[in-house]
Write a protein that binds this DNA or RNA. Structure first.
Lengths: 305, 305
DNA sequence: GATGCTTACGATACCCGTAAAGATA
DNA sequence: TATCTTTACGGGTATCGTAAGCATC
């Protein structure tokens, strides 16, 4: 048994049992991959994969158990390297943060700036992705820290730390009739065409929930993944927008008006998340700390004294 | 990085940093061991061991962290093999139970008999050892299950399951003056020379505790590791014995009398223990189950569905 | 016929063990 | 001096990659 075999098992599961892809992903030959799989199966005395002729279709029952343990082993191997790197070169290395557009653009900039100041020798990669992709990246080790409003708190094997709480707000063009109102109601909103976030993005479930609970049908004319797109089309007069309030900047967004609507929609919480059991470099912990300065205990909850 | 290197790191710590011993334990050459250590240190970029000239003295700070992770990796590697073996050959294999004399002789026989009946193809090894040795064996993977009254419940990285509770009892020769008494007191006991268990064996702390709390000094004339030795010398008239009550058998131990003394000493609890994070074969779980039939939940606490 | 897995085979690199040298107690 | 680690070197083996063969879709 060797590490390459374990990596191949893991990658085979991730790549939908296509050994050719696995070989490409691990920068080696198909033939080698094939042999490694056979060798390991022989050594363990059980078939790990369901085969139909020469095709791989999935994991056998023992294969499922083995794959779980393999994941843990490779996770710990990563931790080994992390521990060593932590000592050999404390303040240099890589940090990959995967975040949604909303987070990357409106929440993270201060933390990122602070981080670059504090750790100039760390290469920081800020990857933009959907909440689901962020989950996957964290689980597969492709990212160290994830930031999103959706999906992170529900996933086992992730540790989610509440980051901040915010409300949705309505934006309309400067001359829009709604600007005349003193206070907004959902019923009024529902009478206009609405542009807001896609399913699974930036608190969208809370918008659906608010209208559903009020028993209102609403006219969603467009769904986007980020507030900038929404704002663009609101400005074009396609409809009124519902965005995260922190995405509005009176300075930059001239021609648009933000209408307070904190009371209309339930609050949303954005989360920072890391993979359970994955050791973080010191500077990664600092990054989290600078995002949520008060929560000393939460870092301890990561199991990383 | 490869598994052999990790095994060497682990074994180097266990063998007190003597590479020659490590090589012998792993059935390989010193030179290879030496090179592997250097190679891994080079790959990780940190020294793992404190050296004085060419001698190894201990672990560096990063070495300590690395050694912990290495232990976890190798533990999981063992689990990998266990998982596979579990499927490839369900009811054959090995089971090593490490137990003290008291447990092996007076508590375990029914469970062992039941086990042999149920799993005739499993090779069962019952190793007799001191509580401290049992701990070590469990931690190092040399035993699957440990049984003892002392030390198992206090050790982190072990999961201890209460097995049964018992009391100490006094044994005296048939014609001994104490047999005339209706009820025994500690004060009376303290007037006789006493033979009982060694420190760290079979509830000895509770005996010390009882006398200490009563402010009595007592005359320990002999300390043994098992009840059979104690009984022998009690029979010879060297003193009165304090043993675990289940170690007395009226049939076998003719010439001796058991005096009830449940009220004199605090109750003792014997434990079954397994290494935290170590996967058990199905038959090993059955063994535990047959020892504590009622505690379904405790087996779940082992993290082994 | 295109894609994907297996087998065969030759080159390479890695791992191991012997032996000698150097360091420590 | 005896014990222990390092270095040097040669032999063996496992791993890898190319290429051909064969099954699946």
């Amino acid at each position: 048994m060797n590490f390459q075999q374990l990596r191949i098992i893991q990658e085979t599961v991730r790549r939908n049992f296509n050994l050719t892809e696995v070989a490409a992903a691990l920068f080696t030959s198909q033939s080698g991959v094939s042999k490694h799989v056979r060798d390991l199966e022989e050594e363990l005395g059980v078939d790990l994969f369901i085969r139909k002729g020469k095709r791989f279709l999935g994991l056998t029952e023992p294969g499922k158990d083995v794959a779980m343990v393999v994941d843990r082993i490779l996770l710990e191997v990563g931790n080994l390297k992390t521990v060593a790197a932590q000592f050999s070169d404390t303040d240099s290395g890589n940090l990959t943060v995967a975040a949604t557009h909303t987070q990357a653009r409106y929440a993270l900039p201060p933390a990122v700036a602070e981080f670059k100041r504090q750790f100039p020798r760390v290469h920081l990669t800020l990857t933009q992705a959907s909440p689901a992709e962020i989950s996957t990246m964290l689980l597969e080790g492709a990212a160290d820290i994830g930031v999103a409003t959706e999906s992170l708190a529900d996933t086992d094997d992730l540790i989610a730390i509440p980051y901040y709480t915010w409300h949705h707000a309505v934006i309309v063009p400067q001359d829009h009739p709604l600007t005349a109102h003193d206070s907004l109601s959902l019923t009024e909103l529902a009478q206009w065409p609405i542009i807001t976030y896609h399913d699974g993005f930036t608190g969208r479930p809370r918008i659906d929930q608010a209208f559903a609970e009020a028993n209102l049908s609403w006219d969603l004319v467009m769904a986007a993944m980020d507030a900038d797109v929404i704002k663009t089309y609101v400005q074009l007069g396609l409809g009124i927008g519902i965005i995260a309030s922190m995405a509005f900047d009176a300075q930059r967004d001239q021609g648009l008006v933000l209408l307070d609507s904190a009371s209309l929609f339930p609050a949303s919480t954005s989360y920072l998340a890391v993979r359970k059991g994955r050791l973080l470099r010191g500077y990664a912990r600092s990054f989290l700390q600078s995002c949520v300065p008060s929560r000393k205990s939460l870092l301890e909850r990561l199991g990383q004294g």
